[in-house]
Amino acid sequence: MKRDVTRIFPCPTCGKPSILSAENSWRPFCSERCKMIDLGSWAAEDHKIAGEPAINQDEWDDQN
């Protein structure tokens, strides 16, 4: 028999407990506010994925 286990992890934005279940529509965040703060950080390029740029900015500027 399968047992449902409630998993609680810290919210990536504020660190408060966040329930990781279908009942929490903002998972892994604790609230919509924390989700939007994280989205804003990505949009402002505060968060980046390491690696080589996909496009050389100088070459892109020369073509346009």
Rank of each mutant, 00 (worst) to 15 (best):
R27N: 02
F29G: 07
S18R: 10
G40L: 01
W26F: 07
K35M: 10
V5Q: 02
A43I: 15
I49P: 03
I37L: 02
I19E: 04
S18H: 08
A44S: 04
R3V: 13
R27V: 10
D46A: 00
Q63Y: 11
E45H: 10
N56Q: 09
D38A: 07
A54M: 15
S21N: 03
A22Y: 03
E52H: 02
S25M: 13
R3I: 11
I55V: 15
H47E: 02
K35A: 10
I55F: 01
E32H: 14
P53C: 12
N64Q: 06
S21M: 07
S21R: 00
C34M: 09
C14N: 05
D38K: 08
P28L: 10
D46W: 00
R7I: 15
G15L: 04
M1V: 14
R7T: 15
P12H: 08
E45K: 08
A50T: 11
G40Q: 08
H47Q: 04
E52N: 10
D61C: 02
R3G: 07
D58Y: 05
N24W: 00
I8V: 05
K2L: 05
P53T: 09
D46I: 07
E32W: 15
S25R: 11
S31G: 01
I55R: 13
P17K: 06
N24A: 07
N64C: 05
A44N: 09
D58W: 08
E23V: 14
C34I: 06
C11L: 01
T6E: 10
F29M: 00
W26M: 05
P53M: 03
S41N: 13
G51W: 09
D62S: 12
S31N: 05
P17R: 05
F29C: 00
D38M: 05
R3E: 10
E59S: 12
S21C: 04
D61P: 12
C11T: 02
C11D: 01
N24K: 06
N24D: 00
E59C: 06
E59K: 11
L39W: 10
R3M: 09
R27M: 03
Q57N: 03
W42T: 05
S18D: 08
D58T: 12
V5N: 12
S25K: 11
I19N: 08
D38V: 08
A43Y: 15
F9K: 02
D58M: 08
P10R: 01
C11F: 09
S31F: 00
P53V: 08
R3K: 14
A44P: 01
T6Y: 01
T6P: 15
S31M: 07
S25G: 01
M36P: 00
A54V: 13
P10L: 02
R7G: 07
T13A: 10
K48Q: 03
D46T: 09
K48R: 02
W42E: 02
L20H: 02
N24H: 02
E45I: 00
D61F: 13
A22R: 01
E59R: 07
Q57I: 09
K48T: 03
S21T: 11
W42N: 04
Q57S: 01
R33A: 14
K16E: 06
I8R: 11
C14Y: 14
A54N: 15
D61A: 07
A54S: 15
W42S: 04
D62Y: 14
E32R: 11
E23L: 11
H47N: 12
E23N: 13
A54Y: 12
P10F: 09
A44T: 05
D62A: 15
A54Q: 15
T13L: 14
N56I: 11
R3Q: 06
D38W: 07
V5D: 07
N64D: 04
